[in-house]
Design a protein around this nucleic acid. Sequence first.
DNA 1: TCCTTAGTTTGATCTGCGTCGTACCGTTCG
DNA 2: CGAACGGTACGACGCAGATCAAACTAAGGA
Lengths: 117, 117
Amino acid sequence: MTEVIEPAIETVTIDVVLSALADPVRLTLVRAFDAAGDWTCGSDVLKDTGVAIGKSTLSHHIKVLRDAGLIRTRVSGIRRLVTLRYDEVEQRFPGLLTMLREHGPARAAAESPASTP
Amino acid sequence: MTEVIEPAIETVTIDVVLSALADPVRLTLVRAFDAAGDWTCGSDVLKDTGVAIGKSTLSHHIKVLRDAGLIRTRVSGIRRLVTLRYDEVEQRFPGLLTMLREHGPARAAAESPASTP
DNA sequence: TCCTTAGTTTGATCTGCGTCGTACCGTTCG
DNA sequence: CGAACGGTACGACGCAGATCAAACTAAGGA
């Protein structure tokens, strides 16, 4: 058992997805899982982002994203691995995740940076 | 005078847009302005949607959408007309508004309805 | 078997924001 | 001019949700 439930992609509504993405921490999470590409441990993926939150808060956000149909969770021994449902989400909401990819973490400065220092 | 300020489309960030669209009333507003197509009076556009809010609340939502770069406001005599910045927004966030168009008002029921009673 | 580790659940707290009422501002018309 | 109308600005209120700490569950390893 211990299989983690998730909604079928056809039942996912745009309202729920937008609400899920409206939180800065969850937006960071989605980008991080996207960057990771493969199954990743949720508590590791925020390491480089500078976001520091309690583990129960992280668990809460993971659940919100999963219920919104954006990520998938798999049980692997003692830990849980997470991956972005990229293809499914893109199939249902074309351009959404691509958008997040291209418009990276909101930089306060300009739009056309010379490089990434 | 009385020209209404709005952000240049290049300065609009995805974070702000997502936050703006995360509210059900504002989502309804955007869909209604999209359906209207042309310059429309803000206080008229909700008439058919069943959404009933005070005029100060409407003014607040209009401002949030305008600050997010999604709509544009023009002064016309005694009233203010609003229009969706469709092309600009689609140019900057391809697929976003198309998404809202195709995934209409969240119906609680199934995905493939026989008709619209 | 017991301890450690990873994660969820629960309960409590607190801040953000959607809402409203009222006052205020600008435009039109009598 | 002054009244009526459309809309904004300003406080105030209340609720949803983000956060944390602590208790609980489950899997591995000594």
